[in-house]
Design a protein around this nucleic acid. Structure first.
Lengths: 201, 201
DNA sequence: TTTTTACGCTACGGTCTGTAGCGCTACAAA
DNA sequence: TTTGTAGCGCTACAGACCGTAGCGTAAAAA
């Protein structure tokens, strides 16, 4: 006979459980402060205080600030806006406007700055936000190619650089651009995308 | 008669002079560390130490870190590369490659993050770097229009957003791009710029 | 000489990070 | 029930960084 004490199923260790409510509050607070403040200005103290727990409770779950922020980034989700209005041009304008309205410059910027010291953070951000974002736009472009609205020989990755980067350049040059900006960008880029060379009005 | 003591020419005040050598060393060190580290990771202590002066000597010249960094940004100068190879397309590739090789992502990024707290820093950066940078490219484009190589109805500001922003998008997506990248970007954008619709090979 | 200023130094209060240890409580095993 | 383990909140701490204050000393003008 075998002793039941060596049961393969993990025997629950003694002692109190980590409060799942605290888990949730800490992660949600970190997520919010990360979006509001970026990496640098998020403080462990503020997370603990606004989550209503002691600072040490945060450190019991995450070994340091980078670890906490990693977990918070991991909960970021790019809303998969499958935009299929039937008009590629309009889809692109809508997607660019979504970037314009929602993109967290603080977060993106600080993670980029932290890259030499905490490469994992930017890596995660790419995985969760940048790559999905590019994927959505790429899909729209490929959709346009299939339907003959976009020339088939475009360099999709470079078009993504141009389109999505334009937002950063605009912010740098003069702050977050206005609501007319996305359409102006697509107008300017369109001849590089359009399958048929439409004459201007 | 008027008393000569109210002489308009400033009477030199008594006491020791501020060491001009210290002036120079502090500003040069701040400039260098700013480019290497960005705003956040530049510390007053490191500036003082590497300039070989006491920390208080720095504070006697600049009231705080933002003040010192402002002065350092003020010494940034965009090298006015008047590129006139006679070929607009090649000029644009060269200018984009200059951005690719030289652009300080740390500096730009951290200043952008500091904007809500120290708007003056980003302002100065725009004045010294962003605006001149855009000006150079804009001039190249207008030059191309005059010579009939670029369509006259382009939205120059939006083209600048697209061109210069592409660099940021590329960095975000996967790190500083390689030497072939600038040409690929111009290739991708060219149909939106070219006056005559050249058929692809 | 007297006064004013720069310099380097030390010390301080404040914020932030990350660690250690204290009572107390919750929970599982003996 | 007793015993051992672990979470929680709290306080204290070392270390980095910011910005300020005051000291003795040296330099420069009145």
């Amino acid at each position: 006979m075998f002793m039941e004490s060596t049961d393969i199923r993990e025997r629950r260790r003694p002692g109190a459980r980590k409060d799942p409510e605290a888990d949730r509050l800490i992660l949600e607070t970190a997520h919010r402060l990360l979006r509001e403040l970026g990496y640098d200005r998020l403080t462990m103290d503020a997370v603990a205080r606004e989550a209503g727990v002691a600072r040490t409770t945060v450190y019991r779950r995450y070994k340091d600030k980078a670890d906490l922020v990693s977990a918070a980034i991991d909960t970021l989700r790019m809303p998969a806006r499958r935009s299929s209005s039937g008009d590629v041009r309009r889809d692109l304008v809508a997607q660019l406007d979504s970037v314009r309205r929602n993109y967290g410059v603080s977060l993106a910027g600080t993670l980029l700055m932290e890259e030499p010291y905490n490469p994992r953070l930017l890596e995660l951000f790419r995985e969760r936000m940048v790559t999905p974002q590019r994927g959505i736009v790429a899909e729209t472009i490929r959709h346009g190619i299939e339907r003959g609205e976009i020339r088939p020989d475009v360099d999709v990755e470079r078009i993504l650089d141009l389109l999505l980067g334009a937002f950063f350049a605009a912010v740098f040059a003069g702050g977050r651009p206005g609501p007319d900006w996305p359409e102006a960008i697509i107008d300017a880029l369109w001849p590089a995308l359009a399958a048929r060379q439409a004459r201007r009005l």
